[in-house]
Design a protein around this nucleic acid. Sequence first.
DNA 1: GTCTATACCACGATAGAC
DNA 2: GTCTATCGTGGTATAGAC
Lengths: 257, 257
Amino acid sequence: MVTARLSPADTKTRILDAAESLFVSGGFDSMSMRQITSAAAVNLAAVNYHFGTKDALIHAVLSRKLDPLDAQRRAMLDAFESNYGAKLNCEHVLVALFLPAVRIFRSDAPGADRFLHFLGRAYTDPSPVVRDFIQTHYIETLGRFFFAFQRTLPELSREDLGFRLNFAMGALSSVLAGGNTHRLIREFTQQQGDHEALILARLSSLMVAALKAPLPGPQEASEFGAMANLPGVAQIGQVLVETTESVPSSTASAPTT
Amino acid sequence: MVTARLSPADTKTRILDAAESLFVSGGFDSMSMRQITSAAAVNLAAVNYHFGTKDALIHAVLSRKLDPLDAQRRAMLDAFESNYGAKLNCEHVLVALFLPAVRIFRSDAPGADRFLHFLGRAYTDPSPVVRDFIQTHYIETLGRFFFAFQRTLPELSREDLGFRLNFAMGALSSVLAGGNTHRLIREFTQQQGDHEALILARLSSLMVAALKAPLPGPQEASEFGAMANLPGVAQIGQVLVETTESVPSSTASAPTT
DNA sequence: GTCTATACCACGATAGAC
DNA sequence: GTCTATCGTGGTATAGAC
């Protein structure tokens, strides 16, 4: 509505900013309402007033950053599909998947430099509150990208593509969550001209490698089996279990192996 | 150490089992002492008596599973280096890195079927209690594997290898932490003979692809740059920035990563 | 409609009784 | 070794000030 004063919207934003920062630092379960409210310089009850609950607050934090990212990803995939049609290849799809995040990261929006770190945390947080939200809100876009990858990589079966995409996306999330993103990216871009393109190229090259790697057949598997059966290797970790189920009373566990 | 009765060791083990299960489900910060003790059917204070603190408890939980894994990894790398010497290749190193985990996963030890899930959680948990413990206790083995990879992949620079290893290990952890591992892996292995070898081959092929992918140069980067500048793509997510104060400010403080 | 003070129950941790 | 009582802190809910 009208709301002449300028304080109300500011309070919500300050809470969101503080919560986001604490979320990136230690994850959802780690951040406390008292930490959030004191960092935002608002009253403890302000969170409950504006968001209702801690779960709803993290949903708002996630939506604020992930909704625009999701929309840009879809828009970019649309643009590539319109431009290339049947000639769409998997590099195009990867660009549509990565470029929006890289652009946000390289923008001068507040907190943009921490965006990749935030993205990694959001995708790796163990809390069901976070995982369920992401898995229910951005499934549609994920399905679109899955379908696009399937079109550009017809040699992969549905299950195999799922395995590789899971692998690739997990890799990206984990790398970003590590927080080394800054140092890593700076290293590769310090003497280059087009930062955005080079970051894209680096990430995409690894992804393409994981997506296009030849599928191991029985013969490759048997090679690994031969390695595993080498003398001095075969017995390592071989669980020769004579004790049925209950492990002996030793403080330092010798069993398991 | 006398402990004639059978209860004391049992109490510790039950606590460890309950804590491990809850850790896999929701991470470190999510699991509560009351959840743990009630699941283990012991008194609330039993945890503090046997382990001292919640942090020490999770350290014990991690050590119980990760120490044997770490030892087996080192032993297997030793065996491969003895067998192959200078002819060691990066597939060998990958087998030494993965096979111990796969063997534990496929053993009939209690909770072995959840081992990969546990491993993923341990490597991705956001809590400093977990991260610091892992990074301080298993650094030595990580260094050994890094050195082994460096020998078998001399064409990669130290920094590039670090980036790719980070990528590959993050992928593995994230895939495992996802929990879909069981269903996914079962799908690919249900009608095959040598499960262990095939799982190894699958994981290794993706890792090898990520480790051996050609490093993108300026020309590849410019191709991606061209994609990003297509009509209908260039303006998506472009944060119309007129203020270009902090451009390529090389704030790279730490030289070597 | 916006914000504050405060009370409520569950959490981790500790001391001391048994 | 095991348990109970207790303290400070976590998320949540409400009454009331502006």
